[in-house]
């Protein structure tokens, strides 16, 4: 379990986060939605350990391993696909033979086999994001943090990638925390959707998403659209 307790964040005069309490069960998929500037990305970065809270604390299981998927894919432009997937394993001192083995299966998993020698600038936005996911997942992380990973891909690719993310998560059940602007995406992927208020960011609603099966048909089900509309309504209340 990942426990966020009493986390606040102040940037100079700006009160970004105010007393956030949240427990995320192992293997759970949660999504944080909220208006721009509500501090949801900051919260994610604090959970990742790349930002420090002004108050409160984060508890993660001992020796648990995390990975972070950035909005812009954050690939090294001078490394080809294969070497980009190897990067995090290299940083974590995984030995060479094991790396190569894992790279092969990871690229297969995200449908990038055959692109090993391509460079990031030769890939589409969707492929870059797949690569970024593969790079994180080869680490077999206990938890995966995703900061608006699909915000810069086209609508169709976005839906395909959502389905792929769901499959990857369903296979490996890594704890997932996703930050997004897209309510449909949140409902499609999550066990719970966390709704945050504008600055200072507070959790205002936690919505359980009950669906067992997530596939393309879900998108046209009434219960699904109703939940999307409900949550969108909560967000619209602040506009």
């Amino acid at each position: 379990m990942i426990s966020v307790s009493g986390v606040s964040k102040l940037f100079d005069e700006i009160h970004a986060l105010d007393l956030i309490d949240l427990d995320i069960a192992t293997g759970e998929f949660i999504t944080i939605v909220g208006p721009s500037g509500c501090g949801k990305s900051t919260l994610l970065r604090i959970i990742a350990g790349i930002a420090t809270p002004t108050g409160g604390s984060i508890k993660k299981p001992d020796a648990s391993k995390g990975a972070f998927v950035f909005q812009d894919a954050a690939l090294l432009p001078w490394r080809n696909v294969q070497n980009n997937v190897e990067l995090l394993m290299e940083l974590e001192s995984v030995d060479k033979a094991e790396r190569e083995e894992k790279v092969r299966s990871a690229l297969q998993q995200v449908g990038l086999e055959g692109f090993e020698k391509s460079y990031p600038h030769q890939l589409s936005g969707g492929m870059k994001m797949r690569l970024s996911l593969a790079r994180s997942l080869v680490l077999r992380p206990d938890y995966l943090l995703m900061d608006e990973p699909l915000s810069s891909v086209d609508e169709l690719t976005r839906e395909v990638l959502q389905e792929e993310i769901h499959t990857l998560w369903n296979n490996d059940k890594f704890t997932s925390i996703l930050v997004t602007h897209n309510v449909a995406e949140a409902v499609y992927l999550s066990n719970r959707v966390i709704v945050m208020s504008p600055r200072p960011g507070r959790i205002t609603h936690i919505v359980d998403i009950p669906f067992k099966k997530r596939d393309r048909n879900l998108r046209s089900e009434t219960a699904y659209t109703k939940l999307v509309n409900d949550i969108s309504g909560k967000l619209r209340a602040w506009k």
Binding site: F68, D72, A74, L91, E92
Partner: peptide, 10 residues
């Protein structure tokens, strides 16, 4: 972003 990525893993 890349600096943060590295920071998380090494």
């Amino acid at each position: 972003t890349l600096v943060e990525l590295f920071q998380m893993h090494n």
